[in-house]
Design a binder for these strands. Structure first.
Lengths: 109, 109
DNA sequence: AAGCTCGGTAAGTCGTAGCTTACGGTTAGT
DNA sequence: ACTAACCGTAAGCTACGACTTACCGAGCTT
């Protein structure tokens, strides 16, 4: 699936954050990730499945190995989600700051 | 603290995502959030503490109530983090696509 | 075809995150 | 001062998620 909130939920785990961070520098195989990370290879494999299901990474068969890499479109989707999020909260913030200064509050009169 | 990875970890929980989503439209009190969300008021209070500790929300005393709202700077920080993330993965992606086409691979010869 | 490397999946354990109820503290109103 | 509204924290329970070991399949090499 390609949902922004599910991506955020997937990125909640620190190990998955580390995996995506490594993959952002270039494609890596499962074993290579397991060498660096403080978890076993099957654990890495399970995390990669989660990241793949939400559309943050994709894999390509490379001989006997399987290369994983970050899907730029997935990151872009998450980025746009935060963008709209940021705009709303900023608008609400500025509106509130305006009410603070000129204390009209004659909204419904 | 004001760390991007800790923000991502905090946003891993769907309830906290929902809380931040509501708050992005404007300030809300704890009780108002609890009315809407499918959890109890103390649960909301605990989630707000997590969101506040990572710098995603801040609160202001308003009489007997306590208004929470999104911190735009917190979202901005997370946004920039994803930006750098996206640029790296895109660069790695394009580089790989280039290697696919012209199969030079005379890197170390 | 046998042996090797690599990786996904199953099964099971364990810690902890999220939830609830109960309680106490603070502010405002009468 | 008493009461009510609102909220944070403590204590405790439960479910789930992250991890491990064990097993098996797929792809090269010789």
């Amino acid at each position: 699936m390609t949902n922004a909130t599910e991506m955020l939920t997937a990125l909640g785990d620190p190990t998955r954050q580390a995996i995506l961070d490594r993959l952002s520098h270039g494609p890596l195989a499962v074993g290579q990730l397991a060498e660096v990370l403080p978890v076993s290879r099957p654990a890495v494999s399970q995390h990669l499945k989660v990241l793949k299901d939400v559309g943050l990474v994709f894999d390509t068969q490379e001989g006997t190995r399987r290369l994983y890499q970050v899907d730029p479109e997935g990151i872009a989707l998450l980025r746009r989600h935060l963008d709209g999020f940021w705009e709303r909260s900023l608008a609400a913030f500025q509106q509130r700051a305006r009410n603070e200064r000129g204390e009209h509050h004659d909204r419904d009169r």
